[in-house]
Amino acid sequence: MAFANEHITAYAVEATEFPDLVRRYRVSGVPKTVVDETVEILGALPQDAFIDQALQNR
């Protein structure tokens, strides 16, 4: 996504190393995706569904 759109920055975060981020974003399972600090996507989704959820506030 980041590669396709210059406005998007993507972070792959190793959860066990950063407990502060795990707390802040209430990560209780992986993979968990957080978009713009607000949208939460749990688990791995098919591409279509993932993009729809990621863009729900856009």
């Binding site: 759109n5 975060v13 190793e14 968990k32 995706t33 957080v34 713009d36 279509d48 856009r58």
Partner: peptide, 27 residues
């Protein structure tokens, strides 16, 4: 090639302001 479908690319064009995606994983 990224593996994004044309449909996905089109949808992503809607993003015109900064957007941050964080994916949490474990090793």
């Amino acid at each position: 090639p990224s593996g994004l479908t044309d449909e996905s690319r089109q949808k992503l064009e809607a993003v015109t302001t900064p957007m941050t995606v964080q994916v949490f994983t474990t090793p």
